[in-house]
Design a protein around this nucleic acid. Structure first.
Length: 514
DNA sequence: CGTATATGGCGTACGCCATATACGGTGCCGTACT
């Protein structure tokens, strides 16, 4: 039976989309695969398909619980009952149940943090493992080094599971990020399937404003001209709130805000309203977007400069998954850079700080104190919790910390120098990425060409007037979408959201959300 | 960099203004409880 027949019989599709067949073939040949496929190209099939043919369990590492929920739900809805997930939203009993259920035919979704659990790993290793998938694999590079270091432990996990073949999937990776992913997963002799990140129907616009007020003026213009639904990205949580108030005052459409500090319920509610076309505009921090599968987002506006071109392409790429004309706008001022730069600053300790931290740890070790919990420890060091967790990861790597034991003899001048050098290097890398983003918008040349160059691609000849630098104006977009406008919006039920929320929380799927 | 809160001097007992300092983003987790 050939792959097309299987596709038809088991998955109900008549043909593969670009790249899918090649990727699936490589996976079936038991190769380690890195696939860079643009947003909306059908990544799920790339592991769903082989997981049904491969001998052994398929493990899928997913960065967000909401994303995991969605995918598991969709796959199960398609009739695949042996798709399970394991995460912190499950009760103890539910977890036990999942651990009993899993077998060599299971597809199991987990977070990288879950895979740090030794007992769980032993249970997983007791089953034959066929395929190890890392979804949204750019997270390894983007988050793994500092924010979510469990991403850097995945290589040990893969070894522990008996080296199943590995498939890393992402929509945005430069050559450098590709190398980082391959290196961090220790993928042996990998096959790389890379498809262009170019999305021709997305038109790019950059506008530099002199003041904050003028930024808002330009935004007002954009909202008059550009189509909705739209996402507006802001740099801080409070900015998302003030922006949504501003837009409401303009009567520019139904608006809500979204950021990581909101409760799970509120986030879920806003997300659902946006997906159901009950909102025109969502003002959000970078927390919003990953796994948002809404095909008809017409406009993405950035009210600041994202920290990297990768992040920009990820966020702007949420527009126009349906391949209809869409707009991506950046409105910025020179002052914008201080926020991203201060975030980078915040992530890494100062030299003096690092010295004090190591000294404190050495003292704890000398007094045979066993290592306290993360919250407690960050208090002792007067560090932010993410900072301490990052340091802990690297100290574990250097065998300074093992479990609750602090091997204080290893804490030396050399160790300080090594860590300090490493942190400085990473900090510089991040600052460079931001500078690249700055030069992307400051240049006088085609923005699309700049993006493609950044991703080591050549711009294909023949795209005229593709962005503001090529002379395109925001009034020129959306001419091609005329006939698809009117039937989009549904009437809004003013009191519907409470019932809707109750539905999401209580039944019929029984989610556990606190 | 801009904004919000905290401190400090004044010169008289509470309120005012000036200046100093802190903060800003992304998520998972057998779990800290108050």
């Amino acid at each position: 039976m050939n792959l097309e027949q299987i596709l038809q019989e088991k998955f109900g599709h008549t043909e593969f989309r670009t790249g899918q067949k090649e990727i699936i073939q490589s996976v079936l040949e038991k190769r380690n695969v890195l696939a860079v496929l643009p947003t909306g190209a059908g990544k799920t099939l790339c592991y769903h398909f082989p997981s049904r043919l491969i001998d052994g369990m398929t493990i899928v590492v997913s960065p967000l619980l909401s994303l995991m929920e969605d995918q598991v739900h969709q796959l199960r809805a398609k009739g695949d009952k042996n798709v399970l997930q394991l995460n912190g939203m499950l009760t103890f009993e539910e977890r036990k149940h999942v651990l009993n259920e899993i077998n060599a035919d299971t597809m199991l979704f987990l977070s990288p943090e879950m895979l740090a659990n030794r007992k769980l790993l032993q249970r997983l290793a007791s089953i034959k493992n066929g395929l190890f998938v890392v979804d949204e694999a750019h997270c390894i590079s983007q988050w793994g080094h500092e924010f979510r270091t469990d991403y850097l432990r995945l290589k040990e996990v893969i070894k522990f599971l008996g080296n199943p073949s590995c498939l890393a999937l992402t929509a945005t990776a430069t050559n450098k990020v590709e190398k980082d992913i391959i290196g961090q997963l220790e993928m042996d002799d990998p096959v790389i399937h890379r498809y262009s990140v170019n999305r021709e129907h997305i038109k790019f616009f950059v506008h530099k404003a002199e003041t904050k007020q003028l930024k808002l003026e330009y935004l007002k213009n954009c909202l008059k001209t550009l189509e909705k639904p739209a996402i507006i990205y802001a740099p801080t949580r409070s900015d998302t709130i003030s922006l949504s108030r501003y837009i409401e005052s303009l009567n520019a459409g139904l608006t809500a805000y979204y950021h990581g500090g909101m409760s799970k319920e509120d986030r879920l509610l806003v997300q659902h309203q946006f997906l159901n076309n009950e909102l025109d505009i969502i003002c959000a921090t970078s927390a919003f977007g990953m796994g948002i599968n809404k095909p008809d987002i017409r406009t993405v506006i950035h009210m600041h400069l994202p920290p990297s071109a990768e992040q920009f392409v990820q966020e702007a790429g949420r527009a126009g998954r349906d391949e209809a004309e869409s707009a991506a706008v950046i409105i910025y001022t020179d002052e914008d850079k201080y926020i991203p730069l201060s975030f980078i600053d915040l992530e890494f300790p100062e030299e003096q700080e690092l010295k004090v931290w190591l000294r404190t740890l050495k003292q704890l070790g000398q007094n045979n104190v066993s290592l306290p919990g993360d919250g407690e420890m960050s208090k002792i060091l007067q560090a932010e919790e993410p900072q301490w967790k990052m340091l802990k990861f690297y100290l574990e790597k250097e065998n300074i910390i093992s479990g609750p034991v602090i091997n204080e003899r290893g804490i030396s001048e050399q160790l300080f120098n090594k860590l300090n050098r490493q942190f400085s290097y990473r900090k510089l890398e991040k600052e460079r990425k931001f500078e690249d983003m700055e030069s992307l918008v400051q240049g006088k040349t085609c923005i699309r060409a700049g993006i493609l160059r950044y991703f080591d691609e050549e711009k294909e000849a023949g795209i005229e007037k593709c962005c503001s630098a090529c002379g395109l104006s925001i009034n020129d977009v959306f001419s091609g979408n005329k006939n698809m406008q009117e039937n989009r919006r549904l009437p809004i039920e003013q009191n519907g959201w409470k019932e809707e929320l109750a539905q999401m929380l209580i039944g019929p799927k029984r989610r556990t959300i606190r």
